[in-house]
Each structure stands twice: as structure tokens, then as C-alpha cells.
Computed example of a mutant assay.
Amino acid sequence: MATWRCIICNSIPSSRQTRHSKCNQIIFLALKSAGFPTLEPFDLFSNGRRLDGITQYIYPSHVCHCVNKKVTEIPIKEILYICLAFCGFVLLTNFSLQNNTIGTYQLIKILTTPTIIFLQYSIYGKKFSGKIILTSLPIICGIYINSYYDLKFNLLGLIYGLCGVIVTSFYQIWAGEKQKEFHVNSLQLLYYLSPMSSLFLFFIIMASQPLSFNNLASNHEYDPYVAFLIIFLSCIFALLVNVSTYSLIRQTSPLTYNMIGHLKFCSTILGGYFIFHDPIQKTQVYGILLTMIGVLSYSLLKLKEQFNHKPDNFLEKPNSKYII
């Protein structure tokens, strides 16, 4: 999906911040002309996450029954917090991307890691060793080196970015805590979370970013069936991302999930260089190396702690005192 999206987005003469938004609108324009107007209401997510709503509506009622998995009942009041945090995570991160440069967006996003450490310590009493905290320093430095050439700050973008960091931190923490509190897995949690969050985002996105089919693709023509395939693949990948995200947070911790996210940042830059031949500077290579050193140091320290506490288990059970 990412390859197809890059092909379409790179053909649009627009700034980097708005390419994904126009790409999605062009896809829907192609579907509309091919007789698929009923897909318009599912335009729930901006900048590459719009069709997540389709997946979220389809999957809960079918997957859980197919695997004969009894869905644990969770009070709506309890799921409402993580639902609102999820909606805030989607909206604020996209607004931050739209109002900041790519470098500024990435630099602000890295603050999620220390914010999670602070919230878990202050609210849930989880303690982290000084060595674990220090591993975030080379990561922050590495991402700064990769982003400093594209830093441009503005008040609105800074507000969106910082609010997104706080909301994202709570969302990732609650995603793990609620699974452990109610003894559910990722599919069961998404069973409750998806319909409610999709409903909220439907009205918010339709009010803040209505679809416009005029002057979007006057010089571009796309096969509607290819566009439909892209949307279908987007739905499948969104489902896999949601399930894997919650499963990873439940089995490890929000901090470990963030560390893996930094590897994704490095792989994105390297993938752009090797696959699409995007230019890369020496300073960016140094930044990638620093980031990977920080992630590797974190992994080694956590494995060492895990071995000292439970030498017979590689991963702790969800309710264990020690977490990865």
C-alpha cells in the first residue's frame, strides 16, 4: 500500500504536508466517477488513515465469531477514555503534520517517549532505571540530526504537536492498561473501541475537512479499479497495524512500542534511499546510527533486566510485576 500511495502522491504537484490528503481525495474522486459514491462516508481519517473506518466497522462482528472467541464485556464508561484518546491521537497528529514541516513534526513526536516515562512513573508508579532513561538521549539526538534541516516552528503547529504528544502518550498507556485490567486481547479491545471511535471521527472529519471533487485531478487520471485495490489494501493493513499495536503493547509495554517505532523511522529513511533513490546526507546517516544505537542499548538493557528477574521466560505475563 505504501508503494502505491507513494506513486500517486509523488505525481501530485503539491507540498509534502498536503500530498497524502490530496492523494486520498483523488482516490475517492476516481471511485465516485466509477459508481462507488457510497464509500464517501467512510472518509474518516486524513493523511493516509481515512479508510481505517471501513476496516473497523467490518472486522469486529466477523473476526471474533470466526475464531469462536467470546468477547469480554467492558463497561462503556471505561472504554470511553481510550476511545477519546484514540480520536485525539488521530486528529492531533494529523493536524500537527499539516501545520508543521516534516522535520518539526518528527522532532515533536519524539517527545512521546519521555512523556510516557513520566506518566507511567507519576500515575502508575512504574520505575525505570537511569540507564533505560539514558537510552532515549541518542535517539533524540539522532532524530534531531535527521530533522534539523527542516525545522520551522509556528504557534499553531506547536500547540497541535504538543497536545498530540500528551494524548498519544495516554492512548498508548491506556491501550496496555485496559487490556490487562479487563483480561482481554487486542481483538476484544478493538471490538469495543472501533465502532465508537469511528462514529466520533465520522462527524468530526466531515465537519472539519469535507470532501471536494473540484480541481483535484484535472491533469491526472487513475484507474478506479486500481484505486479500489489501494483502498482495500489500506483497510487490510490498517487492521493488521491496529491488532499488532495493541498486542505488542500488551505483551511488552508502551515504552518498548515507542522504541520499535523509532526503528520504523530509520527504516523509512533507508527504504526511501534504496528503493526510491531519495537523496540522503551524511548527517542523516549519523542520525540513523545514533537512533539505532539507542534502540539497541534499550533492548539489551531490558533483556538483561528480564533475564535477572525471570531467567526461564523471555516475555513476562501481562499481569507480572516486571515489564519489557
Rank of each mutant, 00 (worst) to 15 (best):
I7Y: 13
I8W: 04
S11Y: 01
I12A: 06
S15G: 12
T18S: 13
H20A: 13
H20L: 14
S21T: 10
C23L: 08
Q25A: 14
L29E: 14
K32E: 13
S33V: 06
A34Q: 03
P37K: 03
T38M: 12
F42G: 07
L44H: 15
L44R: 06
G48E: 06
G48Y: 04
R49I: 13
D52H: 06
Y57D: 04
H62W: 13
H62E: 05
V63P: 03
V67F: 14
T72A: 03
T72K: 02
E73I: 12
I74E: 02
P75G: 02
I76K: 10
I82G: 01
I82C: 03
F86I: 10
C87F: 01
G88V: 11
F89Y: 15
N94D: 09
S96M: 05
Q98F: 14
N100C: 12
I102K: 10
L107C: 12
I110T: 15
T113P: 06
T113V: 13
T115I: 06
I117Q: 00
F118E: 06
Q120F: 06
I123S: 05
Y124I: 03
K126R: 15
K127R: 13
S129I: 06
G130Q: 11
I132A: 08
I132P: 03
I132D: 05
I133E: 06
I133W: 04
L134K: 09
P138Y: 09
P138L: 08
I140N: 01
I140M: 15
I145L: 15
Y148K: 15
Y149L: 12
Y149P: 00
D150P: 04
K152D: 12
N154K: 06
L155Y: 14
G157I: 07
L158N: 09
Y160V: 09
G161D: 05
C163V: 13
G164E: 05
V165S: 00
T168H: 01
Y171P: 02
Q172G: 01
Q172V: 04
A175K: 00
A175C: 06
A175N: 00
Q179D: 02
V184P: 04
N185R: 01
L189I: 03
L189P: 04
M196Y: 14
S197Q: 14
S197Y: 10
S198P: 01
F200Q: 07
I204E: 07
I205N: 12
F213R: 03
N214D: 14
L216S: 02
A217V: 00
N219H: 15
P224S: 08
F228K: 01
I230C: 11
I249G: 00
R250N: 05
Q251S: 13
L255I: 15
T256L: 09
Y257S: 07
M259E: 03
M259D: 02
G261D: 07
G261P: 05
H262F: 15
S267W: 11
T268I: 14
T268F: 00
Y273L: 02
D278T: 09
P279V: 08
T283I: 14
T283R: 07
V285K: 06
Y286D: 05
I288C: 04
I288R: 04
I288A: 03
G294S: 08
G294L: 08
K304Y: 13
Q306R: 14
F307P: 00
N308S: 10
D312H: 11
K317Q: 10
P318F: 01
N319S: 14
K321Y: 14
Y322I: 08
I324F: 08
